[in-house]
Amino acid sequence: MNVKALFIALCLPMSALAQGFAGLGTEADGFSVPQPDPQFSFPADHGAHNEYRIEWWYLTANLEAADGTPYGLQWTLFRSALAPEAGEGWTAPQLWMGHAAVTTPDQHFVAERLARGGIGQAGVTADPFEAWIDDWALTGDWTTLRMTASAPDFAYDMALTAQGPLIFHGEGGYSVKSAAGQASYYYSQPFFAIEGTLQLPEGDVAVTGNAWLDREWSSQPLAENQTGWDWFSLSFDDGNKMMGFRLQQTDGQNFTSATWITPDGQTTPYTNGALVATPLATNDMGVPVRWHVELPAEGVDVTVAAINENAWMATSVPYWEGPVTVTGSHEGIGYLEMTGYE
C-alpha cells in the first residue's frame, strides 16, 4: 500500500471536508477542547499540540513579479490525531498532510504530501521552529522564516520577515465557530514581507509581496450542522487588514466572525452577524469566485474577486484556495479559501 492509500485508509473519519479534517463536526472523544481566556506561551505554542485532534500551520501570500504579474502562493501543514493517546514510531497517532500551491492568472499548480508521525517523515518543533513534511520546510524564529516546497511542475524558495505583531482572533485567541459554542485557538502573523523565486514551467520568476500565516488548533471547532466555510484574509491599500469567515449551515444560515486589524496591529473582534459575505458569481464548478463582503462597523463594502477562478485544490480533501483582488470602499488584495463545495 502506498503512502497516500495508507493515509486515506487511516483517516476515513476525515475524508469528507463537509465535516472537515479529522471530523471537525464530530465529538471530541477524549481530546482536549479549547477554553475561554487562553494563556499563550511562545515559542512553545508555535509547536504542535498533540492533545488536540486537528491543527495547522497555514501560509498564503500575494506576490508580484517585476512586470506586474500577480501570483498567489500557499504552504500548509495539517496535523490530525487518530487518538488522544501518545505513542512512538508507528504507534504514534499523529498523521500529517502538506499542501503547496502556486496560482498565476491562468494556471494553478498543486502538490500534496502525506505522512505518518513518529517516524521522522513530518513534524513540528517549537524552538528552534521547524515545520516539515519530507523535503518541504518552514523554518526560522517567526521574526524571519524560510519556506521551501517542490513538485514535478513547480517549486519555490521564499524568505519572510515579520513587520508587525502577532494577531489573536476572537477573544484573545479563543475563536468561537458556532452558536453552540464550538471554538478553536486561533492566531496569525499577517505582517510578513516575502520575497524569493518561483520555479515554473516557463522559467524562474523573482517575486515580492506580503504573506499571512495562520495558526489554529482544536478538537471540535464546527457544530454538527455546519458543512464548510468561506474564509477571507484581506490586506487593504491603506494598511488595515481584515480576517473574516462564514461557516455554512444545513439550515441555510451562516455563522460569521471577523477581526479588524490596524496597521500597527491593534485589533477589534466582531462576533456573529457583523460580517456579511454574499456570493455574486460562481465558476463552472459552482464555487463562488466573486463576493460582496461587508463589515459596516468599519465601513467595509467591497467586491472580492478571484485572480484565477480555477484555483481548485484537487487534493485528498478538496477545496478552493487562491488570491483575490478587493475593490469598492477599500482597495487591496488578499486570499480566499472555500470548503464544502466538492
Rank of each mutant, 00 (worst) to 15 (best):
T76L: 11
T69Q: 15
L73W: 11
F42Y: 13
Y58Q: 01
Y58T: 04
N62Y: 01
Y52D: 05
P84N: 10
L77T: 13
E64P: 01
Y71C: 14
A86H: 07
L77W: 09
Q74M: 08
H46W: 13
H49N: 12
N50A: 04
N50W: 08
L82S: 11
E55N: 02
E88V: 06
F78N: 03
N62R: 09
L73K: 04
R79V: 06
W56K: 05
F40V: 05
T76R: 06
L63M: 08
A83P: 01
E55S: 04
D45M: 06
G72I: 06
P70E: 13
A81P: 01
H46P: 03
G47E: 12
W57K: 00
S41E: 00
E88Q: 08
P43V: 04
H49C: 08
G72P: 08
R79T: 08
A48I: 07
A65S: 14
A61F: 08
A65V: 15
D45H: 01
Y52E: 09
E64N: 13
W57C: 03
H49R: 02
D45Q: 07
G87K: 04
N50I: 02
E85F: 15
A44R: 06
A65D: 10
G72H: 11
Y71N: 10
F78R: 01
A61H: 03
A83R: 15
E51Y: 12
D45I: 04
E55P: 02
P70F: 15
L73E: 05
I54N: 10
P70Y: 09
N50L: 09
W56F: 15
A66K: 05
R79D: 10
P84M: 00
F40W: 00
Y52M: 02
A81K: 09
P84T: 03
Q39F: 03
A86L: 13
L73S: 05
P70K: 11
A83S: 02
W57D: 01
F40K: 15
I54Y: 08
E85S: 12
A83Y: 02
T69S: 12
Y52R: 10
H46G: 06
E64C: 07
S41P: 07
E88A: 12
T60F: 08
L73Q: 12
F40G: 05
L73T: 01
L77I: 06
L63G: 09
P43N: 13
A66R: 01
Y71L: 05
L63E: 15
E88Y: 15
G72C: 07
A83K: 14
L82G: 04
F78T: 07
A44W: 11
P70R: 02
P84D: 03
L59A: 15
E88C: 04
D45S: 09
A81Q: 11
S41F: 02
F40Q: 13
S80G: 14
P84R: 05
L77G: 00
A48R: 12
G47S: 06
E85V: 07
G72A: 05
E88R: 13
A86E: 11
L63D: 12
L73V: 00
R79C: 05
T69E: 14
R53Y: 05
Y52W: 04
Y58R: 01
G87A: 03
F40H: 04
S80T: 10
G68L: 14
G47A: 12
G47N: 11
T60K: 02
A86T: 03
R53L: 08
E55Y: 07
